[in-house]
Computed example of a mutant assay.
Amino acid sequence: MPLDSPLNSLGFAKPPSETRVVVAMSGGVDSSVVAAQLAEEGYDVVGVTLQLYDHGAALAKKGACCAGRDIHDARRVAEEMGFPHYVLDYENTFREAVIDEFADSYLAGATPVPCIRCNERVKFKDLLETAKDLDADCMATGHYIQRMMGDQKAELHSAADSNRDQSYFLFSTTQEQLDYLRFPLGHLKSKDETRALATKYGLSVADKPDSQDICFVPDGDYAKLIEKLRPGSAEAGDIVDTNGNVLGQHNGVIHYTIGQRRGLGIGGLADPLYVVKLDVDKKHVIVGPREMLATRRVPIREINWLGDGGFADMKERNIMVRVRSTRPPTDAILRPISATEAEVELLVAEQGVSPGQACVFYDPDSTRVLGGGWIWRGA
């Protein structure tokens, strides 16, 4: 093929039939549509599904990612569209890289985001290397985020549909990974478009509901899982106010998160109280008025920078940030401290900023994701 040949839809100057793409298939409608669409366009598609935890537990959890039922659904889509499909056992890797840290973070009083660690340490690391071992030109996923070519390099951008945007969970994607990854759904304006494509391709998962909970946490009961993984972790203690006065008792710090109001068991007070701090060493759940949750200065570490230039050499700059996945980006000032640490000053105080959550950076003048880092202590 001549050097000036037009690029195919995945950005390669060769026919789709000569372009191998590994599709990470969870068994849900999003990744299934990606695989089906690329197969219909004539690409050399290889579907791969990860078994991330025990099949028996998985089967009891409806709607969970990568459960036994989902592996079956992914295999069925591959059969329907006529491309090979493989299931890889990543159970030990997933436990060591994701589940253990999740449990330990909760025990330390943090509020972890395991989906980010899964993308960072499993899907975009080990699975991506497997794709390269299969001589794939790229790896595609069903994430709602956009990869665009900028003047200098491939850039990460928010999804066209802000309601489906998954940039918060993908901030730790490195530049090397971004060069290899593709996100075919990022430009779609709604999930209805995705389901319409699934119907068009005749996929059996077209009406399958979306997964809501963390895949390895049955019914969203984090504390129950942590008690199972770390026996004896739910030790009772006191609920105290900011002056140390005992207001009640609790049955384990792991049952509480920063900003929590309900379920404290200390009713009858004049004003509502919120969890403002967790003291794991003293086994104290510390409560206070809502205004004590307001935070403006947020320390960040483990920074992954996707912007232009070196991070450590950059002066402070105005950006937008998200400090929780459920909140929209807000104006902030980013002040680098080193290549991996920074302070973020929020122009408007946010409530419930918690260690263990991510702080994701956005360009205020575009949809570009500039990277992000981890909130590592109370501001």
Rank of each mutant, 00 (worst) to 15 (best):
S17R: 15
K132E: 12
K228G: 02
Y274C: 03
P218E: 07
C359D: 03
K277C: 05
A24L: 11
R20A: 12
N8D: 15
L134P: 07
Y43Q: 02
G27S: 08
V353R: 04
V205C: 08
M25R: 11
V205E: 06
L347H: 07
D219N: 15
F216Q: 01
D207R: 11
G186A: 13
I375W: 05
M81V: 02
H187Q: 14
G109H: 06
R296L: 07
E350D: 09
P329V: 05
S172R: 12
V87K: 03
V77Q: 07
A58P: 00
M148Q: 15
C66Y: 14
G244S: 04
K200F: 02
E227V: 08
K189R: 14
G63K: 10
T367A: 11
M148K: 15
K277S: 15
G252R: 02
I337C: 08
A78Y: 06
T367R: 12
P218K: 12
A196Q: 13
A36S: 11
A35D: 06
Y274G: 03
I258L: 10
A312S: 14
L247T: 01
M149V: 09
I254K: 01
E235N: 11
S167T: 12
V22R: 07
R147G: 09
G109D: 04
N243H: 13
N92D: 13
V298N: 06
L247P: 02
P364H: 07
A198W: 02
M292S: 08
V298P: 05
T257H: 13
L88T: 01
N92S: 13
P299L: 10
D331Y: 00
Y256E: 02
K61T: 04
Y222R: 00
R182W: 10
I99D: 03
D44G: 06
Y43W: 05
D210H: 06
N243T: 10
G56R: 12
D133S: 14
C115A: 08
A64P: 00
D308C: 07
M81W: 03
Q249W: 00
K208E: 01
R317W: 03
V34Y: 07
Y86R: 14
K14I: 10
S5K: 13
D137S: 15
A294E: 14
L269A: 03
E343R: 03
E176R: 15
A39Y: 01
L269G: 01
C138H: 09
D30N: 09
V34Q: 06
I333H: 02
R377C: 06
P364A: 11
Q152Y: 10
Q260L: 09
